[in-house]
Amino acid sequence: MEFHIEKIEAMIYTIRGQRVMMDSDLAKLYGVETKALNQAVKRNRERFPEDFLIEPNSSELASLRSQIVTLEGSSHENHFRHSPFLFTENGVAMLSSVLHSKEAIQVNITIMRAFTKLRSFLAMGSPLEKRVDKIQKETNQLFKIVFERLDHADNQMAAYEEAVTPKLPRIRKKIGLKN
């Protein structure tokens, strides 16, 4: 069974500032029952420290529900019968050591690629944000100079108009940004 990275990316949620995958989604990908996957994890609990496996509290479950609801075509119900295990990227990698099928290995490789793609995409955002901020600051400075020069020219024109013909109305209204 072949899985596309985009389908897997839709199964990645954010809890505690970490990207995670739910046990039920992983079970579907691996072609096993959720109960069987969780039993394998429980038998090998020492392989899944807190930074590999998250057992969410009630507020985190609510956050997870809201993330699931916002995804189109989600097959999850609005409630969980049991609190799901949430696997971080390292936890997903560790699953390959407790699930030994060839299918599990291939699925694991695809999942790792999805996490890597997300990480590189997020890493690209930081330099782009800095460039946009720099362009915005430079543009603001440029507009400030333009408005100052227009105001200066307007003042000179107003002084000239008053000296030559004091009864004529001003030609241009002052433009600029309001404070």
Rank of each mutant, 00 (worst) to 15 (best):
M1F: 12
E2Y: 13
F3M: 13
H4E: 14
H4I: 15
H4V: 15
E6S: 15
I8V: 15
I12E: 03
I15E: 11
R16L: 07
R16E: 08
Q18S: 15
D23C: 10
L26T: 04
L26W: 01
K28P: 00
K28N: 09
G31F: 05
V32Q: 01
V32N: 05
V32K: 01
T34Y: 02
T34I: 00
A36K: 03
N38C: 05
K42T: 06
R43G: 01
F48N: 01
D51L: 02
F52Q: 09
L53V: 01
E55P: 03
S58Q: 08
S59H: 08
A62R: 12
L64H: 03
R65Q: 13
V69C: 10
E72G: 12
E72T: 13
N78W: 10
N78H: 14
N78D: 15
N78T: 10
F80V: 07
F80H: 07
R81Y: 12
R81G: 14
H82Y: 06
S83D: 14
S83T: 15
F85N: 15
L86V: 09
T88M: 01
N90T: 03
V92L: 07
A93Y: 10
M94Y: 05
M94W: 04
L95C: 14
L99M: 15
A104S: 14
V107H: 09
N108M: 05
N108C: 13
I109T: 07
T110V: 15
I111H: 10
R113Q: 14
A114N: 06
T116P: 05
R119C: 09
R119I: 08
S120M: 14
F121N: 03
A123R: 13
M124T: 11
G125N: 09
P127Q: 04
E129P: 00
K130P: 02
K134L: 04
Q136D: 12
K137C: 00
E138T: 09
N140C: 08
Q141H: 00
K144Q: 04
I145L: 11
I145N: 03
F147G: 02
F147P: 00
E148I: 11
R149I: 10
D151S: 11
D151E: 13
H152R: 03
D154P: 07
D154T: 13
N155Q: 13
Q156R: 04
Q156I: 08
Q156W: 03
Q156T: 02
Q156V: 05
Y160R: 04
E161K: 06
A163C: 08
T165K: 12
L168P: 00
I171G: 01
R172S: 01
K178D: 09
K178T: 06
